[in-house]
Amino acid sequence: MQDVNAAPTTASMPARLLNRSIGKKLLMSLSGLVLLGYVVGHLIGNLQIFVGQNALNAYAVFLRSIGAWLWIIRAFLLGMLIIHVWFAVKLYFENRSARPIRYKRKVYQEATLSSRTMIWTGIGVFLFVVYHLLHFTFIVTNPQYSHLEDALGRHDVYSMVILGFQNYLISAVYLVSIAIVSYHLVHAAKSMFQTWGLNDTNFEKILRPATVIFAWLILLGYIAIPIAVLAGIVKLPEGVI
């Protein structure tokens, strides 16, 4: 048992962030904001597949051309992911232990399903990130179509994506995963404003529908790619098997 009678200590700033409930919330939302920003940026980059092979492959070359910066950005994102996952797991267990005896009957009145399943959708997102990196970044799961080159000798990302999504199973995994990511974002995007104290009763009325619309845009934007490939709208260029 903790000594609840001891006088509260006015901890230092890092301790106020790392050890106090509101501090941990702030770190969760800050790291979450960075990751959310990445989800948006990544989508904008990916949508260039609709412009064509040249645009997407040139974009891939551009990303590689920034050299050290690419690795700094990747390390930063990885750090944010680690912070986000670490505190998510820590908070989950803390919150569980705050109610050792469960209710026999429990009815939720206002808590959304999205908010109550954050840890589970979060695990889903994490597994998807791992698979996605193995698939397209580290090229472990489907190496057969991932070392193609286009007419200009560039890494043919365009054909790699199309060949990947032509597989129904892979497309299905992506569709489900993107749905989980979007569902995670419904609560995440709204929750962030509350945690940063940027919320009040009037703003809340706009915020709720706004975050749902935002999550739908993310969902539709990402799933458009495998659907377009399966529907034959985005086609392989000539000469690629």
Partner: peptide
């Protein structure tokens, strides 16, 4: 926090 309450995750219950 010392008293052992959980953390807020903005459920609004």
């Amino acid at each position: 926090d010392k008293e052992g309450f959980g953390n807020c995750t903005n459920y609004y219950e």
